[in-house]
Design a protein around this nucleic acid. Structure first.
Lengths: 194, 194
DNA sequence: ATGACACTTGAGCGATCACTCAAGTTGCCC
DNA sequence: GGGCAACTTGAGTGATCGCTCAAGTGTCAT
């Protein structure tokens, strides 16, 4: 009795596994269990563990950026959209996320020094993310919501670091209220000037 | 021809390895190469890979806290000492560190969800660190360097997260000047109110 | 010199790693 | 229903994993 598999579903399951356990600590046995696929099918569909990992990173980044774009479109202003993203959609405040930590942040701190293709993919995705942040800040500057002499790139950099800092803290703090407070503070800081 | 080994030296070498490669990606073969010890000696001295890792975490935390205490003793005020620590002694600005990333931060993001003893050790060390930060802020409040209504615990929490955020950014940014600037900014922010 | 003891040595343990591939199954077109 | 391409299956690959332990070596006091 053979079972047919949906590549996207399997990728989602692999993503959750990698997210929680990390790349090195996730074995193919784990992936087989999670996806219900046998090694042959996994390799036919994804090529290798590293490629599957890269695909999962890409998928996650895509998902986040779609979400951010949606919030941006609904928001009254660029900064409001960004604040909503932090307060609502980011893994820090998303109850469905397996960890209250951005997958890319965790991957960055784990993976450094290893497979080159993975490192490249990660820095590509993070750069894209920073660029999006910067473009939103630029819109805010143009719209007059930020002082004209503001540096959008620098603001993006700082936001990226601030989010990563919160991720770190969220992982160790058992009291969800503390994290919620910190997230709210950051969102507020983004919305009402910095 | 047998070789006698110094436990502290071996521990330092193991620490550097774990720091750069992470726990899961560091094999006993790697540790043997780095320390020059054979498996039997390693196990006689340290018990297991996990125990060696815990010892390395402890040693690192101790090293950092000694450094911080020294700077604190020399500084004109508690906040000055803290700022010096960030600007001078923290891995972010220490050229000798194998990575511009606090070992505990990296370990926290890698290790979550695994060996219980490691998780416990990590959260113990991080709590100690936060407590030290908080006590320094408390001294600053008592000394009148911070408004009396300041919340030392909250300030410590925020500093911890800010440092972690910088670690994340330092790992991906190839331009050392950008990081230096961000570190200086944070040190300044700590020194001159927040 | 000798025996007692502590430490080092490294071959090798069973388990698990990422991965392959020949055989089996399925769905589709004619 | 016969033929074929596409996919699934899972036993099995060699390598490496963390770890053990009997044998070897060095350092003592006597």
């Amino acid at each position: 009795m053979n079972v047919s598999h949906d590549k996207d579903t399997a990728l989602d399951q692999a993503l959750d596994l990698f997210w929680t356990k990390g790349y090195a600590s996730t074995s193919l046995k784990d992936l087989e269990r999670a996806t219900g696929m046998h090694p042959g099918s996994l390799y036919a569909a994804f090529g290798s563990k590293a490629k599957l990992y890269c695909l999962s990173l890409e998928r996650y980044a895509k998902r986040l950026s779609v979400l951010r774009a949606e919030l941006q479109a609904q928001a009254a202003s660029p900064l409001d959209g960004l604040a909503d993203f932090i307060a609502i959609a980011h893994p820090l405040s998303d109850a469905d996320a397996p960890l209250p930590v951005c997958y890319l942040v965790k991957a960055t701190l784990e993976t450094s020094q290893g497979n080159q293709a993975i490192d490249d993919k990660l820095s590509e995705l993070l750069s894209q993310n920073d660029a999006t942040f910067a473009s939103i800040f630029q819109q805010a500057i143009t719209a007059g919501d930020l002082p004209p002499q503001s540096d959008a790139t620098r603001l993006a950099r700082q936001l990226s670091a601030d989010l990563a800092g919160l991720c770190f803290y969220a992982l160790r703090e058992e009291d969800a209220n503390v994290i919620k407070e910190m997230v709210t503070d950051l969102a507020k800081r983004v919305r009402c000037q910095r």
